[in-house]
Computed example of a mutant assay.
Amino acid sequence: MRAAIVHDWFQGFHGAERTVWELLPLFARQPDVFTFHAARELLPAPLARAIVRESRLARLPGVRQRGHNPGRWRWLLPYMPIYFERLDLASYDVVVSSSHACAAGVRTPVETLHVCYCHTPMRYVWMPDADSERVRGPAALALRAAAGWLRRWDLRASRRPDVYVANSTAVAARIRRFYGRDAVVIPPPVAVDEFHVRAERERDHFVWVHRLVPYKRPLEVAEAFRELPDLRLTMVGIGPLAGELRRMLPPNVTLRGWIEREELVELLATAGGFIHVGEEDFGMSMVEALASGTPVVALRRGGALDIVRDGVDGVLINPPATPAAIRRAVREAASASWDPNVLRRRAEEFSAGRFRERMAALIATRISSGPVR
């Protein structure tokens, strides 16, 4: 059986890219990977070698990404639907599209099983208000100009997969709302085995690890700790809000740039709590904190509702995530008693092994039932 995996783009080795990495072992024969653009030097070598095609336009000098320098290939978004529609996938028995943009729009023969693992329907065309804090400047203007056409194309393309898999119940609800399609919920793979529980913890020390962008709420989180002088916060991240954040930091808050994964593992293992108050499609970092035996303070929206049970795995905040609301939740988390082993067992429900088991069972069931189109 020949399999292909189609992924929007590889700009690093983050949540969506790790999902593709965990899809590779599902097939006895190495799948071919198709994408629009790949920063191969940031990927594990076997994954980089599996990529058989990417856009020639996206690889042009001055356009392609080099290392962590983002390049300008995202400006080609209006061309991406054409690129993915023209991919020749006729020789494959199974196609898995890993999509948060255009990859789900590939065309496959009737006899080919097409499973779409949907990280979210295109935010910038279906949720422009919610996405306004993620995309700004000239890129936002270009997206608004193309939004109508992209929305119509995306709705047509949503009929092509045989089955949708959503990474959370929140995303499944969006798929139903925007596409009129049902979706099976299979959480994405989290490398829980890379994290460990330590007996010694600093209960007064909280951790925030995210991009310094508005929807992650770094300014609100830092401001919340201004009136928590007996607690400490370490913020880890880079992004456009770095300068503003540094100018307003309270004395009990430390801001660091990005750190190596090994240091992150130790930071989470010794922390008294982890803060994640941005609305996410899923939110792998919350699972990583739980895998370290660390309770999570999260927003009661999006993927957090699948991960954090209020009072069991952490504390949920009703939106909006104001400094006062964050402060109350942090106080509650700091004063409660948490069993790190219970938190760890919760994280194991989202392991890479569980993800592979669920996806393999779904694909096997759909293959045995035959074509549905």
Rank of each mutant, 00 (worst) to 15 (best):
L47D: 03
L89E: 01
G12C: 08
P81T: 09
E348Q: 09
A50G: 03
A191I: 08
S168D: 00
L57I: 14
R64H: 11
T19Q: 03
S337N: 13
V265Y: 10
E279H: 06
R356S: 07
A222F: 10
A298Q: 02
A38H: 00
R72G: 07
D131M: 08
L228P: 07
G15W: 01
G293R: 04
L343F: 03
A298C: 08
P229A: 12
F34I: 05
V372Y: 12
D129T: 15
H37F: 06
R144I: 10
H68L: 15
R345M: 11
T19R: 00
E111I: 10
P340G: 07
D8Y: 00
V165P: 01
C118S: 05
R300S: 07
S98C: 03
V125H: 04
V163A: 15
I363F: 09
V171H: 00
A199V: 14
S337D: 13
C116K: 02
R2D: 11
E223Q: 15
D313S: 05
G293V: 01
P25V: 07
P31S: 09
M284C: 13
G278D: 01
Y164H: 09
F10T: 02
A50Q: 06
L231H: 09
T294Y: 03
D182I: 14
G278L: 08
P251F: 11
P214V: 03
D154C: 06
P218N: 10
Q11V: 12
I326R: 02
E244V: 12
R74W: 11
A146W: 15
P371Y: 10
W149V: 15
A173V: 08
T120N: 00
M80F: 00
A50N: 07
Y117W: 07
S337L: 14
V330M: 05
H100Q: 00
A361C: 13
V342N: 00
G278M: 07
A139R: 13
L57Y: 06
A145W: 12
R136T: 14
A334K: 06
H114G: 09
V6R: 02
R53G: 08
H196R: 15
A325G: 06
E279A: 11
A289D: 05
V236K: 05
V209S: 10
A90M: 06
G137P: 05
S98R: 02
G314T: 07
I326W: 02
V20F: 01
L249R: 09
I186Q: 05
N318P: 08
C116Q: 03
I238W: 13
N69Y: 15
R66W: 12
L299E: 00
P251W: 12
P78S: 08
A39K: 03
G257A: 11
V192C: 12
I82P: 04
P240L: 10
